[in-house]
Write a protein that binds this DNA or RNA. Structure first.
Length: 272
DNA sequence: AGTAGGACCTGGTGGC
DNA sequence: TGCCACCAGGTCCTAC
């Protein structure tokens, strides 16, 4: 599942290859994923790609005419940079964005991924970016910001970490990992956390996200970067994917529950 | 208003 | 071996 660190990794790859290239065309076999429609992309023809950015789990492509293409990988979306022309489709390829030199392939088993085309004035609203909360790794995101995000909330802390309108970019893997690192039970109601615990969770969240970026993402099931390479962060996971295995700190078996509709793994001994 | 749960999707897996 | 129920979870939408 691409979360903040995986998207950040892909965005870096895209920048190194695609910046400055001229957009040629879009070809899609699953047009429901494209908003408003494939025909709107005709206005992009000939535009130069000048920026590639990440916001939450969204990838934002800026063109010199002021058009903005936004892409969200959702759960099983994958991007792959190929040479234009000869290469075959990647597995479950749904959409292809052809540039002058390279072709960007969008594969997506579950067809949840989305591509939007707008302009500088409306792309945030079109794509849902306007609803996102702050970036947890940005310099401006302080402990005080985090406290005010959480204030008065009665939901389980993990449900809040997953809520993109509270904090942008955290998904199931890093939410579980952050709770474990902070020694906080993911079911704890937010309002039961004291200031020390909130500070600890803030540090833990930023640590696991940074660690994920440094390791070029978690390839737990099938994440690959834009060149088809696996990340290394799966070797550093302490709880996600380790249900019923021994806790790495205390050797008590990890427990799996379902929280906010997501599989959730925690240590009943270390996380209180 | 705030929250919970279903819908969207399909490949992989485990049980019978 | 074949079939089927179920699981994975990011986001939007609906219902309470």
């Amino acid at each position: 599942m691409p979360e903040l660190p995986e998207v950040e990794t892909i965005v870096g790859d895209l920048r190194t290859v695609l910046l400055g290239q001229k957009f040629l065309r879009i070809i899609s076999s699953f047009e429901q994923a494209i908003s408003p429609s494939v025909s709107h992309f005709e206005r992009l023809g000939g535009a130069l790609l000048i920026t590639v950015k990440r916001r939450g789990k969204y990838i934002i492509f800026g063109f010199d005419g002021g058009q903005v293409l936004v892409l969200h990988l959702r759960m099983t979306g994958r991007l792959r940079i190929m040479q234009s022309g000869l290469e075959p489709a990647i597995p479950f390829e749904r959409t292809r964005l052809d540039f002058a030199v390279n072709s960007l392939r969008f594969g997506d088993i579950r067809k949840f991924g989305k591509i939007y085309l707008g302009d500088l004035g409306n792309y945030e609203l079109l794509s849902g970016i306007s609803k996102l909360g702050p970036e947890p790794l940005s310099e401006g995101f302080s402990v005080q910001n985090f406290v005010s995000c959480l204030k008065g909330n009665s939901r389980p802390i993990k449900a809040v970490l997953l809520d993109q309108s509270m904090i942008a970019g955290v998904g199931n893997i890093y939410a579980d990992e952050a709770c474990f690192r902070a020694a906080i039970n993911p079911w704890r109601p937010v309002k039961s956390l004291n200031n020390d615990e909130i500070r600890c969770l803030y540090d833990a969240l930023r640590f696991v996200l940074s660690e994920g970026i440094n390791n070029r993402g978690t390839s737990f099931s099938d994440f690959e970067d834009a060149f088809g390479r696996k990340g290394k962060n799966q070797k550093f996971l302490r709880v996600y994917g380790r249900a019923n295995k021994d806790c790495l700190q205390c050797l008590v078996p990890l427990v799996k529950t379902k929280l906010a509709g997501r599989g959730t793994v925690h240590c009943p001994n270390c996380q209180v």
